[in-house]
Write a protein that binds this DNA or RNA. Structure first.
Lengths: 157, 157
DNA sequence: CCTATTATGGTCAAGGAAGGTCAAGAAGCG
DNA sequence: CGCTTCTTGACCTTCCTTGACCATAATAGG
């Protein structure tokens, strides 16, 4: 067990917030001030600890009134995201989408949209590249599904 | 809700007016006074939030008795498949998706999936190509939406 | 009539308020 | 020591807000 680094402390703080709420909104500058560190330290923590593979999603907006939003994804999320390959055939992708729809992770019409997006004609690129792009697209779309699923589960207020 | 900047508040106010009436007429100076801001702030809100791409039209007249008129365009105008360009920026695509969701053409979570798919990082290609692929993807996804909408129960428009 | 005045709204560039990126160095840990 | 993980600071991008200056329409005066 290592000593609590600053990054660990910030992680712990955020986890505590996320334990209460599946969705937390905060300001980078405020947090950096709170822990007396450089603002980019916050990004380091987010990048290394709150990744999709670990079951979290981060959204943010810059400029005046900017914010950082942390979302805790449903439990099965990390698994389904971490073993996504970097390169994916249309058939493989379709099977994954089927499983998501069957598992109720996404609605039937979200699944239909995803199937349309992984279609080879829709991507319209030559083959070494196409499977690459498809993998990135599917990952992003699955993340979106998990995000909305997480927000739904929260008792929409 | 997030930080609610002044621009967000003005937008919310205008949306509220537009919810009651598809056509709203108001005075820039009056509104600026109401929100205690520079008149040009009103233009900023109009230019960034009430664009044709988002389904609004703005007309105005200067001089004595001048006014600003806001019109909410019918949900489908301009968003049809036939005039989908062959090349599409992320922002343009997002606005089109917003309109589809507002018009009830697709569900909120289908819209979330589509937004994820048109994201520049998700596509992950250099720029001349990226906007190209995005246009094809969006077209395919919208077609999928329309198909499932048709299955759900043939609406009028 | 024609012009000056006044009452609107429009444009644009500068400045401020967030967050993002990256690379260099420091600190831990075999 | 050498490798990985932290931490920071300099610089960038995005979004918001304001103010100075411009354009146009109605109207009042000559």
């Amino acid at each position: 067990m290592s000593a609590q680094t600053l990054a660990d402390q910030i992680e712990a703080h955020l986890l505590q917030l996320l334990a209460a709420d599946a969705r937390v909104e905060l300001q980078r500058t405020y947090l950096a001030h709170m822990f007396a560190c450089a603002p980019s330290q916050i990004n380091y923590v987010l990048d290394t600890r709150f990744t999709p593979a670990r079951g979290y999603a981060v959204e943010s907006r810059r400029g005046g009134g900017g914010f950082i939003r942390l979302v805790r994804l449903p439990a099965h999320a990390g698994a389904s995201l971490s073993d996504l390959p970097l390169c994916l055939s249309q058939t493989e992708a379709e099977h994954m989408i089927d499983r998501l729809a069957d598992g109720g992770v996404c609605s039937p019409d979200a699944a239909a949209v995803m199937r349309a997006a992984v279609d080879r004609q829709a991507i319209g690129l030559p083959l070494p590249l196409r499977d690459d792009v498809r993998a990135r697209l599917l990952r992003a779309m699955i993340e979106a599904c998990l995000r909305t699923a997480a927000l739904r589960g929260e008792g929409s207020a």
